[in-house]
Write a protein that binds this DNA or RNA. Structure first.
Lengths: 187, 187
DNA sequence: GATGACATGTAATTGGTTACATGATTAG
DNA sequence: CTAATCATGTAACCAATTACATGTCATC
């Protein structure tokens, strides 16, 4: 593994540590409830990434002894780490995104699917999307109500909500298109 | 590499070959202009995947000698391959999607960004999204006009268009939120 | 004494991209 | 003669996930 190469995941950790020092385990929980919906990080990934960031001098660890819980290593963003974070943030490069949407892959070959299975696929997907949409909506509401100053987290949650709204209306459009209104007397 | 394991990419190739036999190179071009926007495949990936599908007996190759072009190996979907494809298509499982949206990662830490750089990031992103949206729109129109029977490809293109529409309105919303209207006399 | 939250990590594997290597043929 | 398209592949690398391993402490 290249020691120098900085991935978006590495910057994500620097960004989270900029908010407050934290141990690997804590970062896992934080990442889960803040950035996971647009940048998932697993715990093991976080641990190995932190080790790399430490050798780069971007974070520094201090052992914290706890009496009521297992001891932990708390990481702090170093000045060098803060500089690297700023450089990345202020660089307006936008690497080409490659989105993978598994459900579209199946749908693309829908001609070959059994109609009932196709309908089930879309219905199941719609239900999930609706549930997720509601979660985003409640997060947005909660942030607006209780953390009105935290505008950026709210914006990213709003993104999720808007995307799912679009997804849902597309799903309705698609289902209507595939299940045409029952033919009347003229066909 | 596990010989048995079938990835969505492998099924994608089976699906494309179901439409018509093709060589690896051709599949690359076809994939590029059909499924790339929701399931990108590189040429090298296609070649190695085809080799695996061949050992599985899901595709069969025949050498085709060409006089005006380099010879090629044309792959055909076998009955076993068609069966595997059907099984996958008619299985309504929906694996959890993990979306990675790099621009949101930066935006999440927007508090730390220079306002002008943040504005530039969003403006650049908006321009790209608009251009992509227009491409999808023209594809949808073209398919509706010239291939009205190819409903599934049109639906997937429509998905791209709707998602980008949502993205664009979210971007406008976000830009308005971050660049509040110039204060009047009361502030 | 079982379960679950807290805590850290290693090793193997996966699914895929990038870089490299080679060569035929056609169009400008 | 040069560039572009057609054609096939190997090797190296990469980011990340999954499976595995170990252990503390608090609560039920």
């Amino acid at each position: 593994m290249n020691q120098k190469r900085m991935t978006p995941s590495a910057y994500a950790l620097l960004g989270l540590l900029d908010h407050a020092p934290a141990a690997g385990y804590e970062l896992g929980s934080i990442a889960m409830r803040t950035i996971a919906h647009f940048w998932p990080l697993t715990r093991t990934h976080i641990y190995s990434e932190l080790a790399r960031l430490e050798t780069l001098g971007y974070v520094a660890a201090t052992d914290v002894v706890q009496q009521s819980r297992p001891d932990k290593r708390v990481f702090t963003l170093t000045p060098a780490g803060a500089e690297a974070l700023d450089e990345w943030l202020n660089d307006a490069e936008a690497p080409p995104e490659r989105n993978r949407v598994p459900v579209l892959l199946k749908l693309f070959f829908g001609r070959r699917m059994r109609p009932d299975r196709l309908a089930a696929l879309l219905a199941g997907y719609r239900e999930r999307a609706q549930a997720e949409r509601d979660v985003f909506a409640s997060i947005v509401d909660d942030l607006a109500a209780h953390h009105p100053d935290e505008i950026y987290p709210r914006i990213t949650a709003l993104y999720g909500m808007r995307q799912l709204d679009a997804m849902l209306s597309w799903l309705h459009e698609t289902e209507a298109l595939l299940n045409p209104p029952r033919p009347g007397r003229r066909q």
